[in-house]
Amino acid sequence: MTGERPQPRHAVLSWLPLITMSAVALVDLVAGPSVGLLPLVSLGPAFSGLVGGWRRTALVGGLALLLCLALGMYDGLFAERRGFTAMASVAGVTGAGIAAAVMRGRREAELAGVRSIAEVAQRVLLRPVPLNVGSLRMAVSYTSAVAEAHIGGDLYEVVATPRGVRLIVGDVQGKGLAAVETAAVVLGAFREAAHDEPDLGGVGARLERSVGREGDGEKFVTAILAEVRSDHQVVFLNYGHPPPLVMRRDGSLDFPEPAEYALPLGLAVHGGPEAKPFTVRFAPGDQLLLYTDGVTETRDARGDFYPLPDRAVLLKEPDARQALERLRDDLIRYAEGPLHDDAAMLLVRYREHSEGAA
């Protein structure tokens, strides 16, 4: 793996203190002391404190003091107060720059620690899905709407059981740490129930009880559960979640929906229809995409929603991970900027018998 090249913008900022001091010195030599630019030599350590460490700032400050002393003597400013005032200005700004560099270094160290903790939390909460389970090939994509964040309110999981491969994709109400806590409750309950419960309805009931205890009827999670069976069938339970996308071997699309949508997980206390399983054919050569509304509700500059049915052609890419990456990149380009909501996608391919494991 090759090392990263310094970005041009960072290189310019690194040289900015020396460039500024050189410019001030040149103008002072050409225009003479009457212009009164000598105190501007202090811009060097000021800029250095913003972009460099405290040692570099101290070094630049020392150079600025020597430059100020040399120019002051050349201009004859130490015969009056102007020379000493300029030296004091440079020394004061250098001290302030060193203090700023120290505080910035501490904040960066704290931020690095927080990012490290977030990455560990991500590995625990959103574990990597298995790439291959029997005849199934899988890939996952997660894009957080929060800058610098790795996790959020969307969730996914894949569990292989003797009854079939069980999957979940969900979207927790709200954002921030509260949403992450609820996502952890759902995923923990799903990982246990997927192994224990004989049918998908039992898994859904366990999740409903877990979210209900956690949120007291105030929090909710839209979710879709799926069970891919060995008899070329997939069973779904939909709790107020966007319908899955099924791409057939011939390229045709299907968005299977239940006869009646159930309320999201956590809202059973308010009544409403129960989630009822429904079955869809899923045969070799077919693909299944589970996703959150951060995908379909992404808007472009005109306010139009992301046209997932039109973009599903991107899933024809032979490699599952590259196909999902292409779809994610297309979604970000469509938004023309950061997404306004988290977007999770889980792609499942039923491989042909003639295909290898790769």
Rank of each mutant, 00 (worst) to 15 (best):
V124G: 04
A301Q: 07
A101D: 05
E181L: 08
S141A: 13
T292M: 04
D304V: 07
A301C: 04
A112G: 06
G271T: 14
P17T: 09
V172G: 04
L265I: 08
L253H: 10
L50R: 11
E214W: 11
F84K: 05
F47L: 15
L177G: 04
D286P: 06
Y156S: 03
H195T: 11
L16E: 02
L13M: 11
L308I: 13
Y156T: 03
V93G: 00
G271W: 12
H232K: 10
D254T: 10
E325T: 14
I168R: 00
A344F: 01
G32E: 08
L263Q: 09
E80Y: 09
P162T: 13
A357E: 14
S116M: 11
L155W: 02
A118Q: 13
D171L: 12
S144L: 08
E192L: 15
F305C: 07
R107A: 05
R104Y: 05
R163P: 01
G92H: 02
A23M: 14
V51C: 07
L339K: 02
L207H: 06
P256S: 09
P128R: 10
A25N: 10
G36I: 13
P264G: 06
P243V: 11
V102H: 09
L225C: 06
V12K: 05
L155Q: 02
T161I: 12
G174R: 09
L126N: 04
V24A: 10
P309W: 06
G52R: 15
L187Y: 04
R229K: 15
A112C: 03
V313S: 08
T279P: 03
G32D: 09
V186N: 01
V114G: 01
H195S: 06
H10I: 11
A184N: 07
G204R: 02
A91D: 01
L177M: 10
L177F: 06
V235P: 00
L237G: 04
G95F: 00
A25I: 14
V269S: 11
R328P: 04
L136Y: 01
G83K: 05
L18R: 05
R163F: 13
V211P: 00
G164S: 13
D231T: 11
R106Q: 10
L187E: 04
R281I: 07
R206T: 15
D293H: 07
L50D: 01
R5T: 12
E181Q: 09
D304W: 05
G49R: 03
V27N: 12
P162V: 14
S135L: 08
V120M: 06
A109R: 09
E4C: 04
A101K: 06
D300L: 05
Y142T: 06
E192R: 15
S42R: 00
T57Q: 05
V60A: 03
